[in-house]
Computed example of a mutant assay.
Amino acid sequence: MRSDSLYVLYQPSADEGINFLREFKLNEFDGEEDDVQQIYALKATTSYRSIFCADNRLYMTGQRPEILDLTTNEVLYSEYVARANPEWSDFGLVFSHGGAVYRSVVWNDASQGLDVVRDYQVVGHLALDIAFEYPPTDQYFYGFGTARDVFRVYCLETQAMLLELDLAPYRIGEWPLKKHVDRAGNRLFVLAGNTVLLVDLGPNTRAATAVVVNQLNYVEEPVLQGLLASGHLTGNSYAYKISAARDGFAIFNARSRSFMMYVAISETGDKMRPVWVEHTRREITAINTEGDLLFGIEDYRPKAWDKFNGDQVWQASAGTMANAIQLGDHWVVFTHPSGDLQCFRWKKPYLSPHRPG
């Protein structure tokens, strides 16, 4: 999603065909899918690709990645044009910053670092072990190590490591460490095992910083202890995802025994206060917004909750196959890699009667 535009990448099921991209301007779309113009087309065989919008660019990662300028529909980078390093794996992750393209050397091994590419020539290498889910949108490049359990923040401008956190102290028992990160404004919300760490990135200037300013052990909260005592949470069923906004974050898991906790944070970040917890024997996932709502999926049905007290305020009339959620301007879109799409327009802003004064 970008504003009210939904970008959908079509891939042929046969060995030969045309890959193409359509831009659905949802405020204008009349339901006739075939009438929507293609803004990009590629005659090639691809087995896996995913897309992500950032800074008016569309990143197509996976097999032979590409970058598309969404203002001009011009291809800025494509490994169907040239591959700068013959030793790259055929699949890769890419992002751009400062006129350069950063490309993973190995698709599933971040410890091999990134090559820096200009004009389809390798001009440098970052020997970093940082696995990232989405391309960075500024100089802050962050993610988790793969060789060991650490979280790192690196500055692309100064080529300096700003922060390295050892996550071993946050492990829960002998279970593999569950970890995830989300960003809201100049804050990173790092979920690691039993704890959420709040990292302040400071002003987005060349003198970049990254400092842990607060942390919350959510497992020690009485309401979570109650779920453990009742047997609702057992084994490896703690939170593994986090979704953040400037005023708080939601943590959740998506298992047969699920829970979702919402935590409010103060403007300065010095206070983190659990507000409510919902638990269910159905799978649940959610995405936070800068408004008063959480959108999500519970028991295969799109829903929305009041973030300030946890009340469900909406649910779709039909179920969904979706496992991911995208937010646009007044739009929420539920997606699945198989091609299942459901788009909902939130016409009137929801103002919670439970919002703190």
Rank of each mutant, 00 (worst) to 15 (best):
D4P: 12
Y7W: 03
Q11F: 08
E16V: 11
F20I: 02
R22T: 04
F24V: 04
F29I: 09
E32R: 14
Q37C: 09
Q37K: 15
Q38G: 08
Y40F: 15
A41D: 14
S47C: 10
R57K: 15
P65E: 06
E66I: 05
E66L: 11
E66H: 09
I67G: 06
D69Q: 09
T72W: 08
E74M: 12
V75Q: 13
E79A: 01
V81R: 15
V81L: 13
A82V: 11
A82S: 15
V106E: 07
W107M: 04
D109E: 13
D109R: 11
Y120C: 10
Q121T: 15
L126N: 01
D129P: 00
F132W: 12
F141E: 02
Y142L: 00
F144W: 05
F144L: 02
T146A: 03
R148K: 13
F151Q: 00
C155P: 00
L156D: 00
A160I: 03
L162H: 00
L163P: 03
L163I: 01
D166R: 06
A168I: 08
Y170H: 07
L177C: 01
K178V: 09
K178M: 07
R183Y: 02
N186R: 04
L191F: 03
V196T: 04
L197R: 04
V199I: 12
V199T: 05
D200S: 13
R206M: 14
N214Q: 13
N217K: 04
Y218A: 02
P222G: 07
P222I: 02
Q225M: 08
S230G: 07
L233V: 10
S237C: 07
I251E: 04
F252V: 03
S256W: 13
F259S: 01
M260Q: 07
S266Y: 07
G269C: 05
P274H: 10
V275W: 02
H279N: 14
R281T: 14
E283R: 09
A286P: 02
I287T: 15
L293M: 14
I297Q: 03
Y300K: 15
K303Y: 09
K307T: 06
S317A: 15
A318R: 15
G319E: 11
T320M: 11
M321N: 14
H330L: 09
H336L: 05
H336N: 10
Q342H: 14
C343K: 05
F344C: 10
K347L: 14
S352A: 08
P356C: 02
